[in-house]
Each structure stands twice: as structure tokens, then as C-alpha cells.
Design a protein around this nucleic acid. Sequence first.
DNA 1: AACATTTCCGCAAATGTTTGCGGTGGAAAA
DNA 2: TTTTCCACCGCAAACATTTGCGGAAATGTT
Lengths: 331, 331
Amino acid sequence: MGNPATLKKISARLNISISTVSRALKNHPDISEKTKRKVKELALLMEYEPNVYAVHLRTNKSRVFGLIVPVISNLFYDSFIAAVEEEARRNGYSLIILQSGDDPLQESENLRLCKTNRVDGIFISLVANSRSAPLYQKLNAGGIPVVFFDIVPEDGSFDRICMADEEAAGMAAHTITRYKKQRVLALLGKPELSITKKRKEAFLDVFKKETGGPAVEVRHCYSSEEARKLVSAALSKKTRPDHIFCMSDELLIGTMKSLYQSGLDIPGDISVLAISNGFIPGLYKPEITYIETSGFELGKLSVKRMLEKMEGATAARSILLPSRLVAGGSL
Amino acid sequence: MGNPATLKKISARLNISISTVSRALKNHPDISEKTKRKVKELALLMEYEPNVYAVHLRTNKSRVFGLIVPVISNLFYDSFIAAVEEEARRNGYSLIILQSGDDPLQESENLRLCKTNRVDGIFISLVANSRSAPLYQKLNAGGIPVVFFDIVPEDGSFDRICMADEEAAGMAAHTITRYKKQRVLALLGKPELSITKKRKEAFLDVFKKETGGPAVEVRHCYSSEEARKLVSAALSKKTRPDHIFCMSDELLIGTMKSLYQSGLDIPGDISVLAISNGFIPGLYKPEITYIETSGFELGKLSVKRMLEKMEGATAARSILLPSRLVAGGSL
DNA sequence: AACATTTCCGCAAATGTTTGCGGTGGAAAA
DNA sequence: TTTTCCACCGCAAACATTTGCGGAAATGTT
């Protein structure tokens, strides 16, 4: 009762060979219905479950995905992970999760771990200053499909799935100009990330094209707290901004801390627009207007793409998930 | 270059036996330093990595933990998961994550998946109306250690790691009575969860002991939205509560939505106290006073306990993580 | 009756690793 | 010289499974 059932034990009890048991359980046409019935009955009784390690060893497939992410505890990533887990499970895959913690070395180590664990595919969102490029070149060469999401390499020869960052940032900029704002403070994330570059460029492009548009001041922040300080500093100037744009939830949180403390009326004195997963904006009063980026949708798309790759889709693709404006009361 | 290196390939190149290669890589004393050096050099060159599936098959150990949780996308669980991932990795374990999605059947299925994947240990937080009791009995019997956390079975014969729920709820109640509140609305979560029962009981106990204490109205909610409605309804009564207690972040969010909308002053007109992970309370103005429950700490403790069990700690223990009051401005 | 075909099943190799045991060669002890 | 001992290494089994191949028995065909 202690140790688990194996093909061998079943075959011994039935006085038939191991291979017959194996085939019977798989409905191989070579095996008679009578034998199949006997085998299946006993297998059920003995609670037989194939030993995945033996199967993997034999087949060289693990039915496990690796997922590497800077941090788990993050409103965007956790919904992404939730979606990937669900979809992977629905397709018979398990999910191993690894955090890189903003450390390029840990990221490389995690990729190595994925390789060691012989996962069938890898989802990865890069840390800032990622140095893993040679590693995923090798993984691809070794036949392990890699799907990049959210924070992706600039090289278009990889499979990449992102929010439509340019579109979202452009949409934000258009919305802001439409409201005839005069002095815009734009808070962006880490400047070395591709996602920041893309959003920044698209955002500024719109303003450049609109002559007589508002003045824009761009600031990069590495944390929520830094955003709070920046906003507080900006508010204390004699010509304070009349609009603040935040490219992420993290920055929005810092911004709102400062705005709440300032006592300014939103959107009367100053308006706010964010790019967000949608959870945080709903907590404030007024609720913050935002451009939605759904980690959940992105996750589902990523798994879909991964499965395509496993089926043999070889050419690299870059997929963009469109976003939409969700109106709150902050603009 | 394509397929990975194996002991066999190394042994062939060096004209020595497989077992010698294996032992050389493990620094077995039987092997001469010269041979070890040669083997290790070539292994490095060929980028040898042991095939984990072969190792697991041979040793019957997988160095993988399973983690089952109702949902990933949750402020408490995601920090818990983050901690477990980190600690597990530091100890050479990988982590497979599964969501039960509030579905007892999925929970059972996930336990089965853990067994199929032959994990070395399982962390699990139960869903409401969990029906998996027989399963983990069997897992324990089968030698797979199980550590329950947060939402745990009532049966004390299992290893359980929770927040000190009684203590936290008692602390909340004491704090509230100290502020001389008159009419308290207490919002609790799903009544069928052990965590709700414990918190409710401890909370009410304190009030019972204090003669002349405030009147308490207890309500159970299944969602944030339900909490919002309940609070709104309570506020529109002629004698509205002067304090609201929320046993979780989820309920706090609903409560604050209603309070923000009501325009009431916090804590002037009505005060608020929550049990929380600490992230949400800081977003509001005023910041909400809360009793802290750290998912991160709980995660670290859980891994520690798991490792103890793997080392042979056999007797079941129930561990309580103490909590502390974090003062905001809502009371 | 001889032959061909079908049905059903077992043998054995292979996947990569670990490990108990036995063996070889040389040096030191008797 | 024979024995003992030690340092070093290989053999082979075992882990559980899959699968190509071959083979026996039963059935069908002339």
C-alpha cells in the first residue's frame, strides 16, 4: 500500500508482460478487449499512475513550462501568471515559476534552471539590463521554445508578446491633448527597459505633431516612492502641472499619495491619466481614468502562441495586444 | 552540438566507464584527482548537465514542491508565493503552482496533479467547502509532506501555518473598544472558512467580556462588491455605525468605495480598522489603520517548516505568526 | 492438408543515472 | 617470494516506461 503501483507490479499480478500492460492502458489495437478490461480494472484498483519521470526520460518531453518574471508580487505579473497557469493546466502542462528580482545574474541562473529542469518551453519577462541574450539564443538552438512577454528584447528575431505600447501611449497622449491641458508631467519607468522607450517615444510623438500642444516634462522613476517625491516637487513649483500621466500602476500609486496629501482637486485642479492593469485606478476617488493593459489577456495569448510554437510554428512573431481607454473621473 | 551531453558521451570520449564519470563529477574518493580533472574539464566543455528525469527516476526524489492556492492574483497569496519561490530556490527546490479557483473539485484535481508530478512536498491553502480531506490523508500516508497555510483544515493532526488569527482579531477588537466606539459594523469573509470562524469568535469574545462595550453587527460577505453594498446600506440607516472593521483587504476595498462615495469624514464621522497585508491600506487618504498579516513572512515560515518535515520532523505542528498593529489615520 | 492471414502478446533494447560489488595492478609488508 | 593492502576503476543491475520486432496460436483460404 505504501509504494506506488507500477506496470511491473500490475503485470506480475496478472501474469502478463509489462509491455502488454503498457499497451492495454493506452488502448493499443494489438491488445484484446478482454485483457484491456482486466488490466484497466486492476490499474484502477491499485491506483496506478504512470511515473512521469520514467515517461519523460523515455520520451524526452516533460509537459512542464518555465515562467521567469522579475517579481511575482506585482499586479500585472500576478494576473499574467494566473492566466498562464490556467491555460497551461487546461492543455496538460504544469508551470514552474522563477523570480529574477531585478537581478540580471539571477535571470541567467533562472534560465539555467529551466534548462536543467528540461522544461518544454519558457515564458520570460526580462529584467532591466538583462544579459541573457546568449542564453536564449542557445535555448532556441537547443529546441526549447521561448516566448517573451511584456519586457522583451529589442531583437525582432524572437517571439514577443506585448501590450500595444505605442498605441497605448499614443492614445494617452491624444486623450490628454483633447482635454486642452497646458503643462503635462509625464512619469515613466526605468529608462533602460524597452517598454519605457516605446511608450515614451510614442507619447512624445503625438505632442510633437500637435503644434501649440501642451508643454511636456518627462521624468523617469525607479519606484513608487520616487514618483511621489517627483510629484510633490513639481506641485510646489510656481507653475505646477495641470496634468500628470503615469505609465504604470506603480507610478500612479506614488502620484496619488502626493496628490492626496496636496489637497488638490482631481480633476478640477489637476487631472490624471495612467496606463494600468485596472485594479488600482478603481480604488481612488475619483476613480482614475486609465488605458487598460490586461495581464490576464496577455497571459492567455502567450500560452496560445507557445502551443503554436510547439506545433511547429517556426517563424518568430511579434504580437501586440490592443488596449482601450477606461473612463474614470480623473480627467 | 544539438543534443545534450550525457555521462555516456563523456565516458566514450575519455575511454573510461560511465560510472567513473559519474563518480568523478561527484568527487567520489575512489577516483584519482587526475581523472577527476579530466572529466570535469570535458564536462564543462560539453556543457554537461545531469538529466533530472534520470536522476529522479533513480533516486525517487524530484526536488520540486507543489503549491496550491485558490487564486494567484491576490495580494496576500502573491506575496506568499513570492516568498516560497525564493526560499525554495535558495534550497535547491523548484516550485510548481496550481490554482483551485474556489472550486473544491479543481482542488482535488490539483492534489492529484501534484501526486502525478511526484512533487517532494505540497503547500496548500484550502478553498471553501474543501472536500480533499481523504486525499491528503493519503498523501501523508504515501510519504508526501503537506504543509497547510492560511486556510487550513480544522483537524489539528496536520501541519498548519497561519496568521495568529485569534490574536489579530482580538487585537482589533481591543483597539476598537479603546477608542470608545458605540456602533461597530464588522465585515467578515466567507462563513465556511476556518479563518473566518476563528477571527469572528476572537473578535466577538472581546466585546462580550467588556460590559458596556459597543454594539456589534456582524456581516459576512463573499466579495468586495457585496461589502460595498452592505456598507452603503448601513450608512443610510438612521443610526449608522461609527466604526467599520474589515477582516480582509477585499472587504476593505468595498468598504472604502462606499465611504468615499458617502463623503463622510474618516475618522471624524466614522472610523475604519482592517486586517491586511499592508499594501492596500496605504493607498487611501487617510491611510487605513490595520493589523498586519504578512504573506511574505508566512511563506518563509512555511518553507522552513517544510524543510524540517523533509528532515524527518514527524509530529504535526500548528504554527501561528504573530501580527502587529500599524497605525494609519483612520482611527 | 497445406498455406496465408489475422489476432494477440512477449522479448529486449533503449532512455540516463546511481551504486553495490568485484576486480586489477602495484606497492608495501611478511 | 608470497601475502596483504590500497588506490583506482568497471560491471551490471535497477529505476519505470515505450516500442520495434518477432513469434505463437487461432482463424481463414485454397
